[in-house]
Nucleic acid binder design. Structure first.
Lengths: 211, 211
DNA sequence: GCACACTCTAAGCGCCCGCTCAGGCTCCGG
DNA sequence: CCGGAGCCTGAGCGGGCGCTTAGAGTGTGC
């Protein structure tokens, strides 16, 4: 796992966000769908709108995807895998638990801010997925949660953190990070880097890290 | 403002949630709409579904509401006013800034957990509102934010809190509380009271309150 | 006892949805 | 030069959508 494409790191942007989607027309449709779903929501988006944004006729969509829902499924799957890779890289890195937690939170938040259109679809359109896909995605989300959970437990065991309820802290931290996708605006007060740094700091306070 | 109905306090539940909506048939429709919007989202909910849940024919809806959107508007307005009242009561209460912030967060979170169906519609279906209503609701949200912002500033001025970025902290706290509506499940690990207490504690850590 | 307002239903209008299908390009191996 | 695969379009299907309309049942004031 853990794709080899994010070596540039730095600000959470990816060099080639949907490079794994081919052919090019299928990628164009998928990118159009991400924009439309993020703007209006899955149910309020029409297949005609998606095809239009990609510069194609409505029928072209069905050459590359069986249904509108399959588009959402592919977006959700790729997005969750990306989110998991980001957290795993940080959690498996070097340094104290506090350093790794700070890195995990700041890079996870940077991604949610910089790719907030994608993240909005990935995090808030789960309910629109079919049963099978949803079950699969829920599995991925549990793995995502487990990374943060593990980091907190390591910190507690090492005596770096002071947390009365590890599961509650995990939940709150994930919730805080994910919700960035809802409120982040590109023309707002903060850059993705700034939000990442701010949030890493707040999270260290939440787990009572010695400073 | 600040309705006189929540004197029972305790667990964040209201005795008569939609008492201000009359006649009774209009209230039944509104409650049905809240359930449906929360379950499936505004755009995926049909007027036939709402009417059916309320035990009426599809046409009955249009006797009490001009459009489907007006239903959402009334839900959103009443919900935001309730949220504002909860925060204002806590912020205007007695005690240190830390005590009032803890009370504000725990009661705000209790409401988001106990009334999570309502809160989900109120917090996550803003984009479906028409332009005029949305502008009005955005105004209410600014007032909600201002309550928390004020509490944090008071705590900083009194030397109770240590916050590098007051606006950032306000945003993060609001985000944390609001997102409860997304993940809270009645059959989950926590009761509304427990989440309220947990979150009040975490928020006090975030603002560096002396303990 | 009757006119009227209020509340509701059965039926259905016009529209746009997700999706299909027959056919036409273009490119490539032989 | 031909045949077939891959990609795309125009036209349109069945159906469900938000909402309207005509009219029936019920309660109230006078």
């Amino acid at each position: 796992m853990s794709t080899a494409e994010e070596t540039t790191a730095g600000s959470g942007g990816e060099r080639q966000p949907w490079a794994e989607v081919t052919p090019e027309a299928a990628r164009r449709l998928l990118v159009a769908a991400v924009d439309a779903f993020a703007e209006r929501g899955y149910h309020a988006t029409t297949t005609r709108d998606i095809a239009g944004r990609a510069g194609m006729s409505p029928a072209a969509l069905y050459i590359h995807y069986k249904t509108k829902e399959e588009l959402l499924a592919r977006i959700s799957r790729i997005g969750h895998e990306k989110a998991l890779a980001i957290l795993r890289d940080a959690a498996d890195g070097e340094g104290t638990a506090a350093e790794r937690l700070a890195e995990a939170v700041s890079s996870f938040v940077r991604w949610h801010a910089a790719q907030h259109t994608t993240a909005r679809v990935v995090q808030y359109e789960l309910e629109a997925l079919g049963e099978d896909t949803r079950a699969e995605i829920v599995g991925l989300r549990k793995q995502v949660d487990a990374q943060v959970r593990r980091l907190i437990q390591e910190g507690v065991e090492a005596g770096e953190f002071e947390v009365p309820d590890a599961q509650g802290a995990t939940l709150a931290i994930m919730s805080l990070c994910i919700d960035v996708a809802r409120w982040f605006r590109v023309d707002g007060r903060w850059t993705p880097d700034e939000v990442g740094a701010l949030y890493a700091d707040l999270v260290l306070s939440m787990v009572g890290a010695k400073r």
